[in-house]
């Protein structure tokens, strides 16, 4: 950008995420607005998925975006896309909120297991998390995995549990938990490579 910072909203809207981040770092409010409009819903949705209630999710998303704005969280291109980075910031904040026991009530929705959890959730317990991550209907990448693999991955990613905590919860050897994590992630990764179909797979690779 040759030292000049883009502030024109119309042009900001057309910047790629990675370029936009440089303008956000320069404390241009309109750039932050564009960033939020692109990723705010995904951030809120992930926070809601992890903390389980709307107020808590709103707090988490707000903390995450303010940390991004105040450059407490720095974007590193090597880490991946801006979207992935924003969501990783949100995930970390949400897990922190869970671990703090923020006291927020679990959400109520059509999911019977969630209702069950809501009734019993005076505090968050491993058993509740286990029930939630065992019962949830899955779509997308995780939904294609065998249950035993998706379960350990969900407990780690959405529950913030370590592999040894998960081994205790499931009553299985640590090595089994770690192995299932690896097999599951490897399968997702291979599927990603194939996601756009065989027509787009490159010949000669």
């Amino acid at each position: 950008m040759d030292g000049s910072v883009e502030t024109d909203p119309a042009r900001l809207e057309r910047l790629a995420d990675e370029e936009l981040m440089a303008v956000v770092d320069a404390k241009v409010a309109a750039a932050f607005e564009v960033l939020y409009d692109r990723h705010g819903a995904a951030a809120y949705s992930l926070a809601y998925r992890i903390v389980g209630d709307r107020n808590g999710a709103e707090d988490v998303a707000q903390e995450a975006f303010l940390s991004i704005w105040r450059s407490n969280a720095r974007y590193d291109r090597a880490r991946g896309s801006v979207r992935s980075w924003v969501l990783s910031v949100v995930r970390n904040r949400a897990i922190d909120a869970l671990r703090r026991g923020s006291g927020s009530a679990p959400k109520l929705d059509h999911d019977d297991e969630m209702l069950l959890e809501a009734r019993e959730a005076e505090e968050r317990t491993d058993a509740e998390a286990l029930r939630r991550e065992t019962s949830r209907e899955l779509q997308g990448a995780l939904g294609t995995l065998p249950d035993d693999q998706s379960q350990v991955i969900r407990l780690a990613y959405f529950g913030g549990f370590s592999h040894s905590e998960i081994a205790d919860m499931l009553g299985m050897p640590l090595g089994t938990v770690k192995g299932r994590m690896r097999l599951g992630l490897e399968k997702i990764r291979v599927q990603l490579a194939e996601a756009i179909g065989p027509e787009a797979a490159l010949e000669g690779t």
Binding site: F32, A41, E58, A61, W69, S88, G140, L185
Partner: peptide, 29 residues
Amino acid sequence: LTVAVDQIPQDVEQLPAPPQLRDRLLSVV
């Protein structure tokens, strides 16, 4: 494998963010 991990939140049910969240953030910003 990090690419696979990054995929996990993409499967989360997408909800509209509350308008007041946007308002508050932009006010601070």
